[in-house]
Design a protein around this nucleic acid. Structure first.
Lengths: 200, 200
DNA sequence: CAAAAAACATGACACTTGTCACCTTCATTC
DNA sequence: GAATGAAGGTGACAAGTGTCATGTTTTTTG
């Protein structure tokens, strides 16, 4: 019997997947979580064989859950289940030791089979990721990312300088460098590009 | 037997919902669509009793599908099924004659029951929408919306003036008025606010 | 250890943005 | 028919943005 935990913030999808997987004779959904923290707690206490992790969840993301599980050397196999085929996400998932990276665009019939294959020791990755230019790694430094995130919230260079205890000019230098790296002509375009690539 | 069509672009959720609803003795999923155009075509040819429409789909949105069905006086009952409790979306859905507006955050068990209640002539709306300040209607004019959409793509005032055949100053006047209406301090904040409210 | 990369800074320049006052035209509405 | 509001416009000003050259100081890494 494969013991499964599902972490997904949309209750409708979570419930539907749980019903679907519970119908398989060799599977049992032992827990469900609606945010990352809940997922982490339940995985550590229930010790499922495998967990399905959505990435964009409240409190902590699925990628962070995976990274923390790896740090604690948890035995639970990890399958990331997400809408986004973003290079940055995929790279982080691989580094965090995920055994699978499936897109929510996959047909539902394939899910159970993918779980069985992962339990058999294989790696399962949606075809869109296998080809595709997933070898683009994040060109932004930590500081540049911090600043771009604040820009995305609508903060101005002056405000960012104040909150980060930097000079006005330094902030603008970082932004200029970021625009250059992303080939964006202004902040707004840069935000779009970074979000789309999963670099934020 | 209630004949159902599901329009949802995420194959995983679409498939899972179809399996779930097909298990109910009084329901039958007669069609599935992955984008708005497909949904519209299938509803007109298959004549289901009720359709579940996601809003953010490729080609045309679920709201547009609803509006076109209303214009053609189609008999099919409409249930909007979306992630977003945005006031602007809800208002458009009601105007398009939708019988239900459910959030994907609803527990999956409630879905079948909601469909039955809609078929019995009731209106089904997720509780978050019933209360909540959904009575905020879009303060932006058509022109202001057009321009804000272009801003969100990263276009500058000059570029927008060129594509819309307006003067540079006029574009900036519209933007200024938009910022004022949304109480935003700059374009980026304005985009965030408008998106969050469903006014874009 | 030396080189490279990251972090932080200054000053200057041109361009873009946001604001404001004020003006016209046209369609809708009371 | 006067009032309102949407659409379009001008010009001017202050503030914000993006670029560049150039510099110092740590931290990382081959």
């Amino acid at each position: 019997m494969i013991r499964i935990l599902i972490a997904e913030d949309q209750r409708l999808l979570r419930g539907a997947l749980a019903s679907l997987l519970d119908m398989e004779e060799d599977m049992e959904v032992v827990g469900q979580a609606g945010d990352g923290q809940e997922a982490l707690d339940q995985i550590l206490s229930l010790q499922p064989d495998v967990c399905l992790l959505d990435i964009e969840m409240p409190v902590i993301t699925g990628l962070e859950v995976a990274e923390r599980l790896k740090a604690q050397m948890a035995a639970c196999k990890i399958i990331i289940l997400t809408t986004f085929a973003r290079p940055g996400y995929f790279e982080r998932a691989v580094k965090a030791g995920a055994c699978g990276y499936l897109l929510k665009d996959e047909p539902s019939e394939k899910l159970a089979e993918a779980i069985r294959r992962v339990m058999a020791g294989h790696r399962e990755v949606s075809p869109e990721l296998v080809f595709g230019s997933f070898r683009q790694e994040n060109p932004l430094t930590a500081r540049e990312r911090d600043i771009l995130r604040l820009i995305a919230e609508g903060r101005t260079a002056n405000e960012i300088a104040a909150t980060l205890h930097l000079s006005h000019g330094t902030v603008r230098n970082y932004i200029s460098e970021t625009l250059n790296k992303l080939s964006a002509k202004n902040r707004i375009e840069a935000i779009g590009i970074a979000e789309q690539k999963g670099w934020l």
